[in-house]
């Protein structure tokens, strides 16, 4: 009994601090924890980890998709940057929109995006995904990608070279370090 009382008195001592924390943060949801961490220097460490393991989702949709596959393969070898191709959206951090988005494919693409766990980023690779490219006036393509996805990096080119894709990843890493990407800014 005495021990319990002692513990009780200890909590009584702790309580003011607890009160302060309670008043400012409630660790009820993951996003609350994230919001709290964002205010601490710990976030820099987290960002360092994230930016060095940008696993991307391979889902070739067009000509740029072939360049995306080649970028992940031996010659360009993105593994050295921690950029690893993944086949499942549930294991991926970055979705590369590599080609034309059509009205028919849009729901499936949205589904893939929703299946990816946070934090996640979008890279628009190629003119088609940025503004329609050569098919901008077609009856079945969608050309305003930014209306549907929070795009961080645009890589122009038709198709962009693998080096450009790697450069895009480097820019994304810089953005993450500077906390300027759209996930961290909450601009999604």
């Amino acid at each position: 009994m005495g021990e319990v009382e002692g513990a009780g008195s200890e909590t009584a001592k702790v309580r003011p601090i607890q009160k302060i924390i309670d008043a400012h943060v409630t660790f009820t949801t993951t996003s609350a924890i994230h919001d709290f961490l964002k205010k601490t220097p710990l976030q820099d460490l987290i960002n360092w980890g994230r930016k060095n393991s940008l696993w991307f989702l391979t889902q070739p949709m067009g000509c740029c998709g072939i360049e995306m596959i080649c970028t992940g393969a031996p010659h360009y070898d993105t593994d050295r940057f921690g950029i690893i191709p993944r086949c499942s959206p549930r294991q991926a951090d970055v979705m590369i929109i590599s080609g034309y988005i059509t009205k028919k494919y849009m729901p499936a693409l949205k589904l893939l995006w929703d299946q990816m766990p946070e934090p996640k980023w979008v890279i628009c690779m190629g003119d088609c995904s940025i503004s329609g490219g050569p098919f901008w006036e077609s009856y079945s393509t969608i050309i305003n990608t930014e209306k549907y996805f929070p795009v961080d990096i645009y890589i122009p080119g038709c198709p962009p070279r693998p080096e450009q894709l790697i450069q895009g990843f480097v820019e994304l890493q810089k953005k993450i370090t500077a906390k300027q990407d759209r996930t961290q800014k909450g601009d999604t």
Binding site: K103, K104, W136, E137, S138, Y139, S140, I142, I143, N144
Partner: peptide
């Protein structure tokens, strides 16, 4: 090849209205 909701528009006909489509 067309989504179901575009059926009946016949895009390759010469009098098709939806081309060019800058949206």
């Amino acid at each position: 090849v067309l989504p179901a909701e575009m059926m009946g528009e016949y895009p390759l006909r010469k009098d098709y209205k939806g081309y060019p489509n800058p949206t």
